[in-house]
Amino acid sequence: MGVKQEISYLIENIKFNLASAMEYKFNFLFMTTSMILNNVFLLLFWWILFDKFKEMNGWMFQDFMMLMAVVSVAIGLSRTLFYNARKLHKNISEGGLDYYIVLPKSILLNSIVKIDYAGIGDLVFGILIGVLAIDPINYPLFIVLVILSSIIYTSFILIINSSSFFIGKGESLSNSLELGIIVFSTYPFSLFGGLSRFLLLTIIPAGFVGGIPVGILKSFNWQWFLILLGFTVLIALLAYLIFRIGLKRYESGNLIVVRE
C-alpha cells in the first residue's frame, strides 16, 4: 500500500474522528477548554517565578513562552492525530492488536490514529502563545520545528509503548516515561547541564522536544537544526523498527476485549 493511500486513509480517519467528536459537542468543548485553562495555569505559575527571579540561567519569561508554544503545539499535534499511541501498550498486552492485524491497512498507523479532545486544547493554546511570543518572520521556522518536535515525541511514545512486546505489561513504565518527557520538556532547558543535559538529549529526548527548537528559534543555527533533523529521522526509524520487531513476538490471546 502506497504512502499516498496511507495519507488519504489517515485524513479520512481523522475526518471520521472529528465528526464523532462533534456528536458530543459539550464534552468536546469542555475538554478542550479545560486543557487550555490547564496550560494557562502552568504559564501563570512560571510567570510568578520569572516575575520574582527575572531570569534563570539566561532564560527570560519570553523564552519560556516560546517553549510553551513549541511543546504545546508538538504534543497537541501528536495527541490530536495519534492519541492511541499512548494506549498501544494495552493493545499489545491484552491482545487488542488482533483487530488491526486482519485489516488491509498499516497496523501501526491504524492502531494509533485517534483524536484526543484535550490535545486540540493544547494545539489551540500553543498557537495562541506562539502568536504572542514568536516574531512573525519566524512563523515558517516555528511550523517546521514543531513538526519535527511532534515526530520526536510521538516516536518516543511508540518506543516506550512497544516495550510491552518484550516485557509484557508495560503500563507503568510507559506512563511514567511519558510523564517524564512532558515534565522535562516544559522546564527551561538552561537549568540542565552536564549529565542531565546529555540524558535529555538521548534517553529521554525532552531537550529535542522543547529546549533545542527554542534555541533555534531564538537564534537560528544550521548545525543544531541539522542535528535536530537527523535525530528526528533516527528516532522515527527506531520507533518503526522496534514496533516491527516487537510485532513478530506478538501473541494473540483468547481474551474478548471491547474496542474503545
Binding site: 458530543y24 459539550f26 464534552n27 469542555f30 475538554m31 477548554t33 479545560s34 486543557m35 485553562l37 490547564n38 495555569f41 502552568l42 501563570l44 505559575f45 510568578i48 517565578l49 479532545y117 484535550a118
Partner: peptide, 23 residues
C-alpha cells in the same frame, strides 16, 4: 459529564499554584 478528566486537569494545576506544590 461524559468525561471528568478535564476537571482533574484543572484541579491538578490549582494544586500546582495555589496548593504550594513547587514552591
Amino acid at each position: 459529564l461524559e468525561e471528568v478528566f478535564g476537571l482533574y486537569f484543572m484541579y491538578d494545576k490549582m494544586r500546582f499554584i495555589l496548593g504550594g506544590f513547587l514552591f
